[in-house]
Amino acid sequence: MPPMRTGRGRDAEFTEYVTARAPWLRQVAYLLCGDWHRADDLVQTGVTKLYTNWHRASTAWNLDGYARKTVVNTFLAEQRTAWRRLVDLRHSQEELVARESDHDAVLDLRAALGELPPRQRATVVLRYFCDLPVAEVARTLDCSAGTVKSQTAHAIETLRARLRSEPIGTPEG
């Protein structure tokens, strides 16, 4: 690969980072959209954006945060576009196999997440999967901390209602 600047070069740095972090980005994307193939598309798009801006991203103090924000913003942007997705209907046998092996509880949570509005879903994923503080979620979603708190509250309420038969936090029922 062609070295772009000094040291290892742009492509090598990018490849090394994405190879290491793509599985994690895929998990974030999957929790956002609830579909592994679409998650792959989100990561593909996000990684492309990351490469486009690598000269800036690679110097970011929090590269994981930069990459995560890219994927989240891609997910949110796709909710608003009619172009989604001309190239994502790849429902395959692997997906069916994966679904069959899902646990019921996991399916329940996936379905419950799917009922949340996209920004609430993103808030939940960032707060409780990525374990980000409110302020960092607000920065990622370009909104106020108050908005994050209210979105979180609404989301938790919805999840609680949706999972009423197995309340969050009370495994014994």
Binding site: V18, P23, Y30, V43, V47, E94, E95, H103, L113, F129
Partner: peptide, 11 residues
């Protein structure tokens, strides 16, 4: 949920 079985990654 994030660690549930998944098809091979297509990146």
């Amino acid at each position: 949920l994030a660690e549930s079985p998944a098809p091979p990654m297509a990146l």
